[in-house]
């Protein structure tokens, strides 16, 4: 009755169910946590160009070229169930063609144990700011710093930092290929 096999089986089953229960409690402990904090954003150079995006077509599209500043301290967002923060700078705007336009301009991965300070001064975007058409001139663009919380186990929520920055692209295209 109480053979080695049944004992091993009992230990295995008990370990598995306690691990499951603990993981579930772990998830519950941070499930309703609000991961928000203040963020300071700003822009330096703001230029719009008309350039073809050859990865899509030969047609010329509006390309926004901006430099920006970010100042935020995300250290306090880390708790025992945060493995990583995926931080990204989002640009949102409306054009004649599109009701919603969202573009990631820059991102940064902050892992547990790394510095939570996000500081960028006069930085160019990491990804090209292509519009879907020719709608960037004189368009107001809202910048916001967001983060996706990657837990050890649990939900994967997105939060926006408090403090947005809005700028408007000029009415004229800038000359020159790159800047």
């Amino acid at each position: 009755m109480y053979s080695l096999w049944t004992r091993l089986h009992a230990i295995f089953a008990f370990t598995l169910s306690s691990l499951t229960a603990m993981t579930f409690l772990f998830f519950l402990s941070t499930a309703f946590h609000q991961y928000t904090t203040d963020v300071k954003l700003g822009t330096g150079k703001v230029v719009v160009k008309s350039v073809p995006d050859y990865t899509v077509s030969r047609d010329e599209l509006d390309l926004g070229v901006i430099t920006f500043d970010i100042d935020a301290n995300l250290t306090d967002l880390f708790n025992w169930n945060v493995k990583e923060l995926f931080v990204y700078l989002a640009a949102e705007y409306q054009t004649k063609d599109n009701q919603i336009n969202q573009v990631v301009l820059w991102d940064k991965i902050i892992q547990r144990g790394q510095s939570g300070i996000v500081s960028a001064k006069n930085v160019h975007s990491k990804y090209y700011f292509w519009d879907d058409g020719r709608g960037l001139r004189q368009t107001p663009v809202k910048l916001s710093l967001n983060w996706n919380v990657i837990p050890n186990a649990g939900l994967l929520p997105n939060f926006a930092g408090q403090g947005e920055h809005t700028f408007i692209f000029p009415a004229e295209y800038a000359k020159g290929a790159r800047a």
Partner: peptide, 24 residues
């Protein structure tokens, strides 16, 4: 943008898990 999505591509059997970086 920022959402992690799972998508299927025609001609590929296995779905891919990646993050949305542009949305119109």
């Amino acid at each position: 943008i920022g959402d992690i999505v799972v998508f299927k591509i025609d001609g590929r059997d296995i779905p891919i898990v990646h993050r949305v970086i542009k949305f119109h």
